[in-house]
Design a protein around this nucleic acid. Structure first.
Lengths: 215, 215
DNA sequence: CGCCGTATACTCGCACACGAGTATACGGAG
DNA sequence: CTCCGTATACTCGTGTGCGAGTATACGGCG
């Protein structure tokens, strides 16, 4: 119920777009998505898949066209995209492309509470992060180069974006590390003192109380 | 249950870090968080707040120290951070800083299905996105400059990061727009043909079937 | 001095996400 | 030819997120 979309989970959009090709049963949608590497950044959870498909059905965006057992396999239901489903997928795509949406990032959360650790530890942790980032960037770049031979650019755009964001993050971390390592980060001493003495530097105490309810 | 953290919601980390200052009741935690502007990127949901606090209590990371009515106000419970809670907060912060985590991005999802729209519409949509991004960047930059006078750098780092990511995104969108507008984007014609004729260009059809289950 | 809008503080219950479990088919090794 | 590991295909139950609702206090206005 995150947004006003009848089925808000982004997996629903992926499901709709594969099912547009031709009617399919849920497991097959998952296989195709996996084969296209869409599960790299957003692994498909089985429970979610079936819930999402059922909800799409309930809202008339998908409809069951065939249900029964072929041979002696477990029963399976084949779904087809409805006209409404096609419209929903298009409209949703339009919104996702046109409207930037702030999403909670765990790194941001970490940065916002990094004052709880000492500057030296933070420096060490960020160094490790940068290492992982660089490895990942290298690996992704290779993988992308390889796919460039097999797939048209249109299908690689989202990987290119993801890579660009990783690079931007690495760059930012690198520049913060320079400030921390060279000691040019303003307020470094106050931060250290706070941890040595265990108390807020004067002036920060009231700041921390801002927004507190009166007793 | 996303990770192995006893209470996986990031709001729990924020709660722990404000409650470290001194014992508090939930509503007060929310007020302080809001006053610090932490709700900008991740608005505090009331339902979640109380659920999270209850779970932290259940896992021994917070403990109730006082429960009862002051004056005739509605009953309220004041919570204190336990030793385990303090450790959890520190450990969690370490993890968030040191380990990059891929998070699902709705823009990425949009890019991965943009083939469903025509190149011209995509161009128009991205132009709108770029406009919104630029406005937002301008506004955030101003806000940040203003806060620089009042708050030490340590408390602004996460805003600086968020701003840097917005700028990186804007830059990326801008360069994609150039390719689309100037027609240098490879495969533009095939993409257009696909929409005019309604059928996949040869070679792409099999590609789309990759991962399909045998009948 | 009574009325109402707003801030304070929380509860409840639905809907969704998802992991773990279930059950059958198929193919290859022995 | 039978045993078992793996792929196929789905179900169920639990925990969690979160909006909408509830209830009291306070301040100002007429």
């Amino acid at each position: 119920m995150a947004q006003r979309r009848p089925v808000s989970n982004l997996l629903a959009l992926a499901v709709l777009t594969v099912a547009v090709q031709r009617p399919m049963h849920p497991y097959e949608m998952a296989s195709i998505l996996r084969a296209r590497g869409k599960d790299q950044d957003m692994p498909i959870k089985w429970g979610t898949l079936y819930t999402v498909v059922r909800n799409l059905d309930k809202h008339g965006l998908l409809e069951a066209v065939e249900s029964g057992r072929q041979g002696a396999r477990p029963e399976r239901t084949v779904y087809r995209v409805t006209e409404a489903g096609r419209r929903e997928a298009e409209d949703w795509t339009r919104e996702l492309l046109s409207t930037p949406k702030l999403e909670p990032s765990s790194f941001e959360a970490g940065l916002s509470v990094m004052g709880g650790l000492t500057p030296d530890e933070v420096t060490e942790l960020l160094r490790r992060r940068l290492g992982s980032l660089e490895e990942r960037i290298e690996a992704d770049r290779r993988a992308l180069e390889e796919q460039r031979g097999e797939l048209p650019r249109l299908f690689l755009v989202e990987s290119e974006y993801a890579l660009a964001m990783l690079e931007a993050q690495a760059g930012w971390v690198r520049s913060l590390l320079v400030e921390l390592a060279e000691g040019t980060f303003p307020g470094l001493d106050a931060w250290r003192d706070f941890h040595r003495t265990g108390r807020m530097p004067p002036g920060l105490a009231e700041l921390a109380e801002r927004g507190a309810t009166e007793e």
